[in-house]
Design a protein around this nucleic acid. Sequence first.
DNA 1: CCCGGAACCTGAAGGC
DNA 2: TGCCTTCAGGTTCCGG
Length: 277
Amino acid sequence: MPELPEVETIKNDLEPLVVGRKFTEVTVDDDTVVQKPSVEEFGHGLVGRRVVGLGRRGKFLILRLDNGRVLMVHLRMTGNLLATEACRRLPKELATARVRAVFRFDDGSTLSFIDRRRMGRMWLAADQEEVVGKLGPEPLAADFTVDVLAGLMARHRAPIKAVLCDQGIIAGVGNMYADEALFESRIHPLTPAADLSRAKVKRLYSAIQGILTTAITNRGASVDTYFRPDGNRGAAHYQFKVAHRLNENCPACGGPIERIRVRGRGTYFCPKCQRTG
DNA sequence: CCCGGAACCTGAAGGC
DNA sequence: TGCCTTCAGGTTCCGG
């Protein structure tokens, strides 16, 4: 599932492919993917516009246009953006996926929006804020300090796992990286966020930054249908210590990794290393 | 306001 | 072999 490191990777990979390019044609095969204006306005608003830069906010990908407007993309769970050649030869995990929309550029290249589960969304908007709404701080930004994290945690009594995944509290962390960060800081996923000691908040802070930074270096995690725009996989999932490793051995104590449900989401952790309370 | 749970969606996987 | 059920999780919505 695309979380912050996956979207950041897609942004980095797309930069040399689309910055400076002008949209010459926009084809939408599934109207539900266009969330913000009508499908007609979406296409008309893009054709003739040039991409001047890319950005990311939480799990949103941002394409900045030469008229100041923005094309926003959220891949949700199974969305993919594939370049011309990658789309021609879909990876077998995507073979049954459907093309929801295709962007054509002035150099003849294309960018295809593939989404098996049809939950990904796109917006054409005047600015990014009207799309992202109420999002928490960027965990890799310079002003995201231990004190900021401590302040956020103190306000919530929900399980720390749920709090980490709440985009309104911290932007970009999802199910996989929340599990990894909690293991790294040896915190039980059901611990009420407000109960974390200062020492644990400090460990969690370092873990979040380390886990996300390493995952970006490894080009994201291909646990399901995530592929980079060139069709290649990421390698971050090879570094996972607990996420999606049910019954495998904990790298710290050797005991079996367990899986529970927190807020309806599969949560992997080591019950020996991550104690309650 | 805070928290938990259901719904959305569709291909894969497992049971019988 | 095939039908049926369950599962996956980012986000939104609803109820307590």
